[in-house]
Every structure is written in C-alpha cells, then in structure tokens.
Simulated scan of single mutants.
Amino acid sequence: MLLLGTLLQVKQQSRSPLEITISLLVPLVQATLAVYLFRAGTNPPALLLAAVGAGMMGVWSSVLFGSGAAIQNQRFQGTLEILMITPMRPVFKILPITLATGLVGLYSVLATLLWGVLLLGVPPSFAAPLWFVLAAPVCVLALGAFGLLLASTFVLLRNANAIVNPLGYPVWLLSGMLVPVTALPGWTGPIAAALPTTWGARALRAAVTGGPVWPALAVCVGEALIALALGTLALHFVERRARVTATLALT
C-alpha cells in the first residue's frame, strides 16, 4: 500500500509545474552559484562539496514545498476530506506523499553532481564513493520521514505556505549544507543537532572529504525514526482536530 501510494504521488508530482521547477531547475541554479562562489578557493573538494550541498538543498526544498503543495492540492480538489476519512491509520495516508517528495528530490543530488562534473569542471574526487552511494538514498528517505512531521501541520492549516516559506532558508543554513555549522553562532548548535538534515549533510560531506560516514548516517536515521513516530502521533491528533474544527475543506 505504501509502495503504490508513493508511486502514485511520484507520478502526480512529475506533472506538477511547481515540482518540475523546484526539482529540475532550482538545484542547477543553486549548484552553479555555489560552485562559482567556492571556485575562488584552492581546495578542489570544496567545489564538489558545493555541488553536493546544493543537491541536499534541492532535496529539502522538494520535501518541504512538495509536501505542502500535495496536501494543498488535495484540499483544492476536494479530496482531502475523503482521504482522511478512509478507514486506515493517518500515517499510511500521508507518508507516501512525503516519501515521494524525497524520491523526487533525489534527482537534485544526481543532477547537481552531473551538472558540476560535466559542465562546471568540478573534479569527482570522492574519498568514499561507495559510502556516498549508500548515504544519499538513506538521507533522502530520512528527509521524507522528517517531512511526515511537517505534513501534520499542513493537514491542520488551510494555508500550508504559512509554514513552508519560513522554513526553507533557515534549515539550509542550520544544516550546514553550504556553510559549515561551526561558522554559525554557538546558540544554533542544539537546533542544528536536532535536525536530521544536519546529519545527512554531514554524512555526505564525510563521504566526499574522508572520515567516518556511518556515525552521522546512524544519527540521521535515528532522528528520522523519532520524527516518524512523532509524526504518526501528530497526525492522529491533527486528524481528529481537523474534523472537529472542520478545517479539511477550503470553506
């Protein structure tokens, strides 16, 4: 059921102009800007890190905006009420949406790498290429699980953009996707440590530059499982709350 729901959502998102723009064009622009900004340095891995970081930014954008847009589309089409009253747990209704946004976002990582290597001359010097191949899809699925926690608010609120828009850039910065977390103020450390995006980006950076990948990857998966559990509980509460307040429909 989860597999079929995820495949259906991937097909729907592949026909959405918003998703096509976010997943196809935005990561390439971000990768180009990041590579040219980092090209001023003399460290070749920094260019590859810029491409990888831009790819992770694309994954987060896909999960964040894609989940909000998918639920908003359900509300606009009048099918969100039908979806939420079907006799199954709420997590099985919403999780395919967030997993699909993560899978669509996986393109961002692949596209930015190919764009950087083939067109921008970024040397593909991976310290641990096998770890990178393993870590990339794991991070994408972890972000999809994290998106489930956010999706609970999208179900409750009629305007998902009120949550989506303010979360894009702050998470990019706090997760260290382009700027190292150590360069940020000290008070941001606990916030960054609580985000699976931080550990996913750290795992991919370790696969590029060298160093242990599995500790950061394990923390990323652990935090994603916690977010999955919290999202399951939140959806159960939100579903009941939305029925009581009648906020599933537009009017």
Score class of each variant (00 low, 15 high):
residue 2 L to Y: 03
residue 3 L to G: 11
residue 4 L to F: 08
residue 6 T to L: 04
residue 6 T to D: 09
residue 8 L to K: 01
residue 9 Q to F: 12
residue 10 V to R: 01
residue 12 Q to N: 07
residue 13 Q to K: 06
residue 14 S to Y: 06
residue 14 S to C: 13
residue 17 P to M: 00
residue 17 P to C: 04
residue 20 I to P: 01
residue 20 I to R: 07
residue 23 S to E: 05
residue 24 L to G: 09
residue 26 V to T: 05
residue 29 V to R: 06
residue 31 A to V: 12
residue 32 T to Y: 15
residue 36 Y to V: 06
residue 37 L to A: 11
residue 38 F to W: 08
residue 38 F to A: 14
residue 41 G to R: 13
residue 41 G to W: 10
residue 44 P to L: 07
residue 45 P to W: 00
residue 45 P to V: 00
residue 45 P to R: 00
residue 46 A to V: 12
residue 48 L to Q: 00
residue 50 A to L: 07
residue 52 V to G: 00
residue 53 G to K: 04
residue 56 M to W: 13
residue 59 V to H: 14
residue 60 W to E: 13
residue 61 S to F: 05
residue 62 S to H: 02
residue 63 V to C: 13
residue 64 L to W: 01
residue 64 L to C: 01
residue 68 G to P: 03
residue 73 N to P: 00
residue 77 Q to M: 02
residue 82 I to R: 09
residue 82 I to A: 07
residue 88 M to C: 07
residue 88 M to N: 08
residue 90 P to V: 01
residue 91 V to M: 12
residue 92 F to S: 09
residue 93 K to S: 11
residue 97 I to T: 15
residue 100 A to L: 14
residue 103 L to Q: 10
residue 105 G to N: 06
residue 106 L to G: 13
residue 110 L to A: 15
residue 110 L to I: 15
residue 111 A to E: 02
residue 118 L to D: 02
residue 118 L to H: 08
residue 119 L to A: 11
residue 120 L to Y: 10
residue 120 L to H: 11
residue 121 G to M: 08
residue 126 F to E: 00
residue 129 P to T: 14
residue 130 L to E: 02
residue 130 L to V: 11
residue 135 A to H: 05
residue 138 V to I: 15
residue 138 V to L: 14
residue 140 V to F: 13
residue 142 A to S: 15
residue 144 G to S: 09
residue 146 F to T: 14
residue 148 L to P: 11
residue 148 L to G: 07
residue 148 L to I: 15
residue 149 L to H: 15
residue 149 L to M: 14
residue 151 A to I: 06
residue 151 A to M: 08
residue 151 A to P: 15
residue 154 F to W: 12
residue 157 L to G: 14
residue 157 L to Y: 04
residue 158 R to M: 08
residue 159 N to L: 09
residue 164 V to Y: 05
residue 166 P to G: 04
residue 168 G to R: 02
residue 172 W to S: 05
residue 172 W to V: 00
residue 176 G to M: 04
residue 177 M to A: 05
residue 177 M to E: 00
residue 180 P to G: 11
residue 183 A to N: 02
residue 183 A to P: 08
residue 187 W to V: 15
residue 192 A to H: 01
residue 196 P to L: 09
residue 202 R to L: 04
residue 203 A to V: 02
residue 209 T to I: 01
residue 210 G to W: 03
residue 210 G to D: 04
residue 212 P to Q: 10
residue 212 P to E: 01
residue 214 W to I: 14
residue 214 W to H: 05
residue 217 L to I: 04
residue 219 V to C: 11
residue 220 C to S: 08
residue 224 A to C: 05
residue 225 L to F: 06
residue 228 L to M: 13
residue 230 L to T: 10
residue 231 G to V: 07
residue 232 T to E: 04
residue 232 T to G: 14
residue 235 L to I: 10
residue 240 R to D: 05
residue 242 A to S: 15
residue 242 A to Y: 00
residue 242 A to R: 01
residue 242 A to I: 03
residue 244 V to K: 07
residue 247 T to D: 09
residue 249 A to S: 08
residue 251 T to Y: 04
